[in-house]
């Protein structure tokens, strides 16, 4: 790795996602809407604010990353957090994820945290000591679930395979099931992906190959949030 001055300045803005699949999805959506990918791997440029997409892990790691970054000289940076709401037995996924995010952001010093996520993605303005901070809770800042649910919203209209995939997964669930019920939407999606022209493509490639619709309303809302976060003036 280079220790050069330029790479330091370009390492300041992050879009943190949970894992490699999530990174692939962001790549594909950003490429589709012409937020340019820079020559450096995993870097994108919105309005001259380069940011890096970095898979960081689930909510536990997000909390760590927020604390660690704030310890850094981070006030002039921008951070975007893409985290799954998740689903648990008590159906507290989104509520609990937002509570944990709120707790760490409050601890760090943010004061303007809304009680529920904003539907178009939350953006906290920060101040002279705190960076601009964006939060998107998958799938849509409203429902419990995960990125697979978000991808589910990107399926083509009137697709014939999608109801079939749901049907078959439900049958499997009632007879023989190896996965946790909270992973049901993963099972739907990957069953559906297995039936495309090139079976079993990861989510990002499925967008690039147009099996999924990058212009779907949910995709556009997500991309608008990213654009707003990294293009906002005045930070």
């Amino acid at each position: 790795m280079s220790d050069g001055v330029i790479s330091i300045s370009k390492r300041e803005n992050f879009l943190w996602v949970e894992g490699g699949d999530d990174k692939g999805v962001c790549h594909a959506l950003l490429n589709d809407c012409s937020i340019t990918s820079s020559k450096k791997k995993d870097f994108f440029v919105a309005n001259n604010e380069p940011f890096k997409i970095e898979p960081i892990g689930g909510i536990d790691n997000i909390v760590k990353a927020l604390k660690t970054s704030i310890k850094g000289d981070a006030a002039h940076n921008r951070y975007g957090v893409v985290v799954d709401a998740d689903t648990d037995e008590t159906n507290a996924g989104l509520k609990e994820t937002w509570r944990r995010l709120g707790a760490v952001l409050t601890e760090i010093g943010y004061t303007d945290i809304p009680s529920v996520p904003e539907l178009d993605g939350t953006i906290l303005r920060g101040n002279e000591d705190l960076p601009l901070m964006g939060i998107w809770v998958m799938p849509d800042n409203k429902l419990n679930g995960m990125i697979e649910d978000f991808i589910g919203f990107l399926g083509p209209q009137n697709d014939e395979l999608w109801p079939l995939a749901i049907d078959i997964v439900e049958k499997v669930i009632s007879t023989k099931r190896n996965f946790r019920l909270s992973y049901k939407s993963k099972a739907y999606l990957h069953t559906w992906l297995a039936w495309q022209e090139e079976p079993g493509q990861p989510m990002g490639l499925a967008i690039t190959k147009k099996y999924l619709d990058a212009n779907a309303e949910h995709a556009q809302r997500f991309v608008s949030w990213i654009r707003k976060l990294f293009e906002l003036e005045g930070k």
């Binding site: 390492r11 300041e12 890096k52 960081i56 760590k64 660690t68 310890k71 850094g72 000289d73 981070a74």
Partner: peptide, 19 residues
Amino acid sequence: VLYDMDELRFAVDKEIEVR
């Protein structure tokens, strides 16, 4: 600003700037 070794490990791995 002090970092404990866990935080430093995390920051180094995730390329979070500490300098």
